[in-house]
Write a protein that binds this DNA or RNA. Structure first.
Lengths: 193, 193
DNA sequence: GTCTTACTTGACTGCACGGTCCAGAACGCA
DNA sequence: TGCGTTCTGGACCGTGCAGTCAAGTAAGAC
C-alpha cells in the first residue's frame, strides 16, 4: 500500500558497504553514501534508519557473505594445507588498490571497537566465527590424516586467523612490502606434517 | 629575544601523542589536544604548525622511542627465543585499556596510509625498521647457535613482525579473546631449533 | 477515477571542526 | 625603565557534517 520503494535495497546496501569499506565509518559522509547508492537522503533514512544502523547492516552482510565463501572454499580444496595456501595466496595476489582496502571487519574493529560496544561485539563474534571455520577445516584435515597426529586444531586455527590478520594489515599499510609473503611462507610450515 | 615559550614542548608533544594514540588523527580535535597539552590553540600553532605537522612529529617520536627500547631489549635477553617470548608476553599481559589502544603506528597505518603518502612512507619505513631489528636479533642468536642451522633470519624476522601485528590487532578489537595467546604459542615454535 | 499512503527531492538547521585574527601580556635586552 | 619581540587567550570565520522538514509525486486500494 502506498508508493513502493523505487530502488533495489539489496543492491544499494552493497554500494554502501563499498563506501564504508573504502572510507571507514567516520570518513564516509551521507553525501558519499547517497551518491554511491543512487538515492536521496530521505530515502536512505526511510529504508535503513540512521547512518550507524546502515553501517551495522553492512557489517553483518559482509561477515555473513565471508563466512559462506570461506566455508565453501575450505570445504572443497584438499589437502587442508593447499586450501589455506590458496587463501593466503589470494590475499597476496590482489591488486594494490584492493590491498589498500584491507578487510572491512578489521578496519571496523580498529576504528570503532574501542568506543562502540555493539560494533565491538559484532567484530568479536566475527573473529570467533572465522576461528571456528578454520578450526573445523583443520579438524576435517586431521580426520583425513593430512596433519601431524595430535595436532591442536583449535590452536592452529587461532594461529591462522592471526596470520591472516597480520598479512592483511601489512598489505594495507604497505602493499609492496615483501614481509607478508615471507610471513605466509613461514606460517604455513606450521601445518607441515 | 621576546617572550619565551611558557611550556615544556617535549612534554606537550608526549601528551599530544597520547591523545592521537587514543583517538586517532581525525578523532582528536584541537580542543582535545589543547586541553591535554595544557596550552591554547595559538600556542600550539606557534610551536608545532598545524594539526597534521604535530601528528607527524608524534609519529616520528613514537617510532624512534620504540626502536631504541626494542633494540635494548632484544640485545640483552638470551637466548633469542626468550627475548621474543618476553616481547609477546608483555603485549599479552597489558591491561585491557592498553590493549584497546593497540600500536600507534599500526593504528595510523590503518587510518591514514591509504590516503596520505607521507604518512604511508613513514609507516613503511617503521615496518622495515622493525623487520631489521628483529632480523638482526635473530642473526645474533644464530651466531650463538641458538637457532637451527640454516635458518632464514630475514624470513623469520618478517614472520615475527607480522605475528606481532596480528596479536596487537586481535587484542585491540577484542582484549579478552583467547586467540592471540594461541597465536603466540604456535608462532614461537617456528624458532625452535 | 479518486483517495490514501508511502516514497522522493531539495532546502534547511544546529553543531563541531580546523584554522585565523587581534588585543593584551610577559619577557630579554639595552 | 622603556622598547622590541614573542607568546597567550579568546573571539571569530568558513566549511562540512548528520539529521530533519515540508512540499510534491507516484503507486496501490476500492
Amino acid at each position: 500500500m502506498g508508493r513502493p520503494c523505487g530502488f533495489d535495497q539489496d543492491e544499494a546496501l552493497e554500494r554502501a558497504l563499498g563506501v564504508f569499506w573504502r572510507l571507514g565509518y567516520e570518513g564516509a559522509s551521507l553525501d558519499d553514501l547517497c551518491q554511491a547508492m543512487g538515492i536521496g537522503r530521505q530515502s536512505l533514512y526511510n529504508a535503513y534508519g540512521d547512518k550507524r544502523t546502515l553501517f551495522l547492516r553492512c557489517l553483518r552482510r559482509y561477515t555473513e557473505r565471508n563466512e559462506v565463501a570461506l566455508r565453501e572454499h575450505l570445504g572443497q580444496v584438499r589437502p587442508v594445507q593447499r586450501a589455506f595456501a590458496a587463501l593466503f595466496e589470494q590475499a597476496l595476489g590482489q591488486p594494490d588498490e584492493r590491498k589498500r582496502m584491507g578487510c572491512f571487519s578489521i578496519n571496523t574493529g580498529m576504528e570503532l571497537a574501542p568506543r562502540d560496544v555493539e560494533v565491538g561485539d559484532l567484530i568479536a563474534r566475527g573473529q570467533r566465527m572465522l576461528e571456528d571455520v578454520f578450526t573445523e577445516a583443520l579438524e576435517a584435515g586431521a580426520g583425513r590424516a593430512e596433519l601431524a597426529p595430535g595436532s591442536d586444531c583449535r590452536a592452529l586455527g587461532r594461529f591462522l586467523v592471526g596470520t591472516l590478520l597480520g598479512v592483511t594489515v601489512l598489505l594495507k599499510s604497505d602493499p609492496r612490502s615483501p614481509a607478508p609473503r615471507a610471513m605466509v611462507d613461514v606460517a604455513l610450515q606450521a601445518l607441515a606434517r
